[in-house]
Design a protein around this nucleic acid. Structure first.
Length: 478
RNA sequence: GCCUCAGUAGCUCAGUCGGUUAGAGCGGCGGACUGUUAAUCCGUAGGUCGUAGGUUCGAGUCCUACCUGAGGCGCCA
């Protein structure tokens, strides 16, 4: 019996004229004779050629779209034009039929992402989704490689958190109480002291505060883990469960932080361009085909591949919030009254404003820094002007904010004052304040939305299509 | 949470001004095919028109509510 080989390794080093065994899923079956087989090891298929007259009729009938088969035969140079090699099968075995008659619904044609999302248990068998998930893996790997190569330590921050003050929106509660059976105090409120952790707990919305402990001891750390937000956000850029990367670095100021963010983004894109060129090329072609049928104004200004290369090859634009406001106030859409929301120093930039800056004014990624303190979180470092904080957002074309970060407030007095102003209970974050009282240091960090980066690199328009199991309001299937 | 649009065969869609038996391509099923590239060709089956009400002689088509999905906004990564 010949050894089973993966298609990726066969294409890399073809064992020509040897008898080999391959296993995989049928992507196409043409002319009763040609099977395009894919085993996921590579974007590419291997053609298996069968002789319908020699093959058992029962087996022939089970060679359906996405049936799983095992084929043994000689690897030869292909007589056809579409591929270099093919296997002349002497033996074919059906490992798993996938009969449409029994209800298999996927078809060998373009299918909508919405339909495939409803059939998410099968969608990785398609070209598009297998490419997306190979690239997703590649980005995850590159993240660890990037930080490991630079002396950062990977830190696991808690998924269940006891602090209610992380300041990043609605949280999912974690409790062992049965609904409506929770013990209550005389005033009717729930007695969390009787719960599993003897306090109210939630799923984490950020590992940043804990990562700061690491940075102020180990110097350079990063987290990469699941993050949960119970916000009722219904957009193509939001998930209730997503993955976030949060580097946190001692002795970094806001400029070091921006340098890291830019270098990191470019590294990830370059890594994927270098490592998964076939998958990127396919996704590039996919978007080109999709946009053929769209009106010009809805198309991207550049193709996917072109956009990725452009981001890698050009410096990100860096401006302050105050400069951004000035640019917007002098912009054509503002003067023509085309913005829906007002522009005024002190108000947060709306999506339409960010989009103008990134897609019209600069036409490249933009880092906006030094936001008014009143629209940002308590832990961001107050600038000398007393009005702004050392915060920065990295804005990408198409998907908006990919990174949000800041230099952290390391001065104990300043931090306490901010917490009081913003009604953050000091006793809950006693340890966070202690980090400023004992051996504190300037430090900075940011959070990168993993799925948003995957979205950007793959060009998928909905974030639900770059995570295997999307969790969104009203939806937790699979 | 707000706004807009959509829901017709397994999938993607067409269905005119409210009018008789609801249409196509793909897929399925049956057949043909020794070089195909989402193969092609011939034949064939398949629909309670999202759900519930309402208007009307008559509703896929008009109205109301709800459900589901998409896009945009807000919130954010």
């Amino acid at each position: 019996m010949s050894k089973r080989l993966e298609i990726a390794s066969i294409l890399k080093q073809p064992p020509l004229n040897e008898t080999i065994t391959v296993m995989g899923w049928v992507r196409a079956f043409r002319n009763n004779r040609f099977i395009a087989l894919n085993d996921g090891s590579s974007f590419h298929n291997l053609q298996v050629v069968i002789d319908p007259e020699q093959l058992d009729e029962q087996i022939l009938k089970q060679i359906h779209f996405h049936s799983c088969i095992k084929a043994t035969g000689q690897l030869v140079e292909s007589k056809g034009a579409g591929q270099a090699f093919e296997v002349i099968a002497s033996e074919v075995e059906i490992l798993g039929d996938s009969s449409p008659e029994e209800g298999y619904v996927l078809q060998p044609k373009a299918q909508t992402p919405e339909f495939l999302r409803e059939n998410a248990h099968f969608r990785m068998r398609t070209n598009t989704f297998s490419s997306v998930f190979r690239i997703r893996h590649g980005i995850a790997f590159a993240i660890h490689k990037y930080y490991n190569d630079r002396g950062y330590y990977y830190m696991h921050t808690p998924i269940i958190t006891g602090s209610d003050a992380e300041g990043a929106g609605e949280m999912f509660h974690v409790s062992v109480f049965e609904p409506n059976k929770a013990p209550t105090l005389p005033d009717g409120s729930i007695d969390w002291k009787q719960d599993f952790f003897a306090k109210a707990t939630n799923l984490t919305v950020s590992g940043q505060l804990q990562a700061e402990m690491g940075a102020l001891a180990m110097g350079k750390v990063y987290t990469f883990g699941p993050t949960f937000r119970a916000e009722n956000s219904n957009t193509s850029r939001h998930l209730a469960e997503f993955w976030m990367i949060e580097p946190e670095v001692a002795f970094f100021d806001i400029h070091d932080d921006m340098d890291l963010a830019e270098d990191f983004c470019k590294y990830l894109i370059r890594y994927i361009l270098d490592t998964y060129p076939d998958d990127v090329a396919f996704l590039d072609k996919r978007i080109e085909d999709l946009e053929k049928n769209m009106p010009k104004e809805q198309r991207r200004p550049m193709g996917l591949l072109e956009t990725l290369r452009f981001v890698v090859d050009n410096d990100f634009e860096r401006i302050t919030y105050t400069e951004a406001v000035d640019i917007l106030l002098n912009s054509k859409p503002y003067k023509k009254g085309q913005f829906e929301f007002p522009i005024e120093w002190g108000k947060d930039l709306q999506a339409e404003h960010e989009r103008f800056l990134v897609e019209r004014e600069f036409q490249k990624p933009v880092i906006v820094r030094n936001y008014p303190k009143d629209i940002k979180a308590f832990y961001m470092r107050l600038n000398d002007d007393g009005k702004t904080v050392a915060a920065m957002d990295v804005l990408f074309p198409g998907i908006g904010e990919v990174i949000g970060g800041s230099q952290r407030e390391e001065r104990h007095g300043h931090l306490v004052k901010r917490m009081q102003e913003m009604n953050i209970p000091e006793h809950e974050l006693w340890w966070y304040l202690d980090l400023r009282r004992f051996g504190g240091a300037p430090h900075a960090g940011f959070g990168l939305g993993f799925e948003r980066m995957v979205q950007f690199i793959t060009g998928m328009s909905n974030i639900r299509d770059v995570i295997a199991f999307p969790r969104t309001p009203g939806s937790a299937e699979f």
